[in-house]
Design a protein around this nucleic acid. Structure first.
Length: 424
RNA sequence: GUGGGCGUAGCUCAGUUGGUUAGAGCGCCAGGUUGUGGUCCUGGAGGUCGCGGGUUCGACCCCCGUCGCUCACCCCA
């Protein structure tokens, strides 16, 4: 209701219980990243603007019109990170860890644009980067991690689109051919690209307008013009994916938005989402990024995924199953003032249990209602009679018929555990 | 940046041709013989009708502006 102090446009607060899904997604990813031998990297949310200009490309849409650029009190020009890769690679360059270096991250990403479904000014990405090797096996592992991750969070209607951008020489030759073709057919392009095809010919490949599709359909496709080395690399990647049983599709038109990609590029799309925001993740190899940021001439490969998009895709697939259980194990009802509940709760929590309780001296009936809604499996009741007897009353909140029993005060933790196990 | 739709209780919404104390469901709180939840019943709290201006005897309703939400284009996660 206070309109003057809301979260900024295009940003969102995520509160429990919704946030449990975020915990689940991030936790699942952290666990998987560990299994795939990636270590967590934390890097600043803002960087010298040059990190992104040199990284994702000064001419890219994101860099030219979507970055949050600001000057700090010391007159330094910074930008809020619009994506994850550039700053991770910057960290790699700065610290020169032993290669191959494998890092995973989860971070907010900022882009100044009008919000819409699946598109926000602050969204969140998680991903991995592997630097210091150009072995195609790394590409395969990165893609496999992404694919296994989507499966782990329950997504089924996901397709992997694969392409190769070649390297600077063979792509350069290809772009020349494409530009010649586009020049010959420039009048047939869609309204937008009739003016911009020359500046960024690759973008035209990505255009969905029938006019552009008709032109590019007859033109040269990048995969047909790869050099031998790039072709071999792509073949190794596809063979690796085949051996892992990971389905993929060739996507010769796949052109990603950042300039740093070379060779392998891929995108995961959800068929449950509308085309405007169906990309739930993507990535690829970048041979020149580290060098562009002043580092060694080493290659890297990685991918990033938008958490909001993943959640959107889950919802669109009708997946309601949660990823983690954040309900309390037990709920303490104390009608003697609340001090006993505090003591018992602390004891149970130290024993590893998740405990909820009521405060403010509410009536037993009221506390029982709260206990019920809390999702706790069992209620632990403390009243004058229990205190006198040195016991508590246990009540199963999930049983269809009322069942309760007395337990010695010292044995509460074990009694709760017994109930929990009985439910599993 | 451009365009469409929408802004009424915490949430989802109703609100008659502008008319006198703005409603419902859910949620929340309290009761229903004073130690007990989930169903049911009763009662209660909660709204400057996004904000500002205008028209009018009178505006939640009409007009203008503004802010916000939302969807689409562009691009992407």
């Amino acid at each position: 209701m206070t309109d003057d102090l809301r979260a900024p446009i295009g940003t969102h607060d995520v509160l429990a219980p919704d946030s449990a899904l975020w915990e689940g997604v991030i936790g699942t990813f952290a666990d998987l990243a560990h299994r795939y031998d990636f270590g967590l990297v934390l890097s600043p949310m803002f960087e010298d603007v040059a990190v992104f200009h040199r990284g994702i490309g000064e001419a890219s849409e994101v860099a030219t019109k979507e970055m949050y650029v600001f000057t700090d009190r010391g007159d330094r020009t910074y930008a809020l990170r619009p994506e994850g890769t550039a700053s991770v690679v910057r960290a790699f360059v700065q610290h020169h860890p032993v290669t191959p270096w494998r890092a995973w991250y989860v971070t907010p990403a900022f882009r100044y644009e009008r919000p819409q479904a699946g598109r926000y000014r602050q969204h969140h990405q998680l991903g991995v980067e592997a630097l210091g090797s150009d072995d195609a096996q790394v590409d395969v592992e990165v893609i496999a991690l992404a694919q296994r991750f989507y499966a782990a969070i329950g997504l089924r209607r996901v397709r992997l689109l694969l392409n190769s951008m070649g390297h600077d020489v063979c792509r350069g030759e290809y772009v020349g051919l494409l530009r010649t073709h586009l020049f010959a057919h420039r009048d047939e392009l869609c309204d937008d690209h009739r003016a911009t095809w020359d500046r960024n010919p690759l973008r035209v490949l990505d255009c969905k307008k029938p006019a552009c599709v008709a032109v590019t359909d007859q033109g040269p496709m990048l995969p047909d013009h790869l050099c031998d080395a790039c072709r071999d690399h792509l073949d190794l990647v596809t063979r690796g994916l085949d051996r892992l049983g990971i389905a993929w599709e060739r996507a010769p038109r796949l052109v990603r938005g950042f300039d740093y990609y070379t060779r392998t590029t891929f995108e995961f799309v959800s068929d449950a989402l509308d085309a405007a925001q169906n990309a739930i993740g993507g990535g690829g190899r970048y041979d020149q990024l580290a060098a562009a940021l002043g580092g060694p001439d080493v290659s890297g490969v990685g991918f990033g995924s938008g958490i909001e998009r993943l959640l959107l895709a889950r919802a669109a697939e009708g997946i309601s199953r949660g990823l983690i259980d954040r309900d309390p194990d037990c709920f303490i009802v104390d009608t003697t003032g609340g001090e006993e509940a505090t003591v018992l709760a602390d004891e149970l929590r130290r024993a590893g249990l998740a405990v909820s309780r009521a405060v403010d001296g509410r009536s037993m009936k009221s506390q029982m209602k709260v206990a019920d809604r809390s999702g706790a499996r069992v209620a632990v009741l403390i009243g004058p009679r229990e205190i006198a007897a040195g016991e508590v009353t246990m009540r199963d909140l999930r049983a269809s018929e009322a069942t309760q029993w007395r337990v010695a005060r010292e044995g509460v933790a074990d009694a709760v555990r017994t109930v929990l196990e009985g439910h599993e």
